[in-house]
């Protein structure tokens, strides 16, 4: 069965490209959200296996969204992504309850799978 994914990102162009890329790599994209609050809701409602989560959202940061998702079962695996890069993003992502960070420049289904538990 395909790994299900929820994409949370405020840029629709990115969501559509990421969706197509992940689907071509065998993932099933079950939902999209454009901000943190609806991302947290969708994570609970859709119970995906993975949430691909942008770091810079219009309302709250991806780290905060990851914490909120981790606090509410079924708490799917969260992978944080961004066009920005910083050495401490991966550690901060893990502290917030996510599996890790992958930059958008390196994003692929394989990169996500590597981070999954």
């Amino acid at each position: 069965m395909a790994t299900t994914v929820l994409i949370v990102d405020d840029h629709s162009a990115f969501r559509s490209r990421a969706k197509r890329m992940l689907e071509a790599e065998g993932f099933e994209v079950v939902g999209e959200a454009g901000d943190g609050a609806s991302g947290v809701d969708a994570a609970q409602r859709l119970s995906p296996d993975v949430v691909l989560l942008d770091l810079q959202l219009p309302d709250i940061t991806g780290f905060e969204v990851a914490e909120a998702i981790a606090a509410r079962p079924p708490s799917p695996a969260v992978v944080i992504t961004s066009t920005r890069e910083s050495d401490d993003y991966d550690a901060r992502a893990r502290r917030s309850g996510a599996c890790g960070f992958v930059s958008k420049a390196e994003l692929s289904g394989a990169a996500i799978e590597e981070l999954l538990p």
């Binding site: 990115f14 490209r17 197509r20 890329m21 071509a24 066009t83 994003l107």
Partner: peptide, 17 residues
């Protein structure tokens, strides 16, 4: 970040695919 960078990231994903 919101403009060109997003398009270029999308472009890279499209080309990889």
């Amino acid at each position: 970040h919101d403009g060109a960078q997003q398009h270029l990231v999308g472009l890279a994903m499209t080309l990889r695919l």
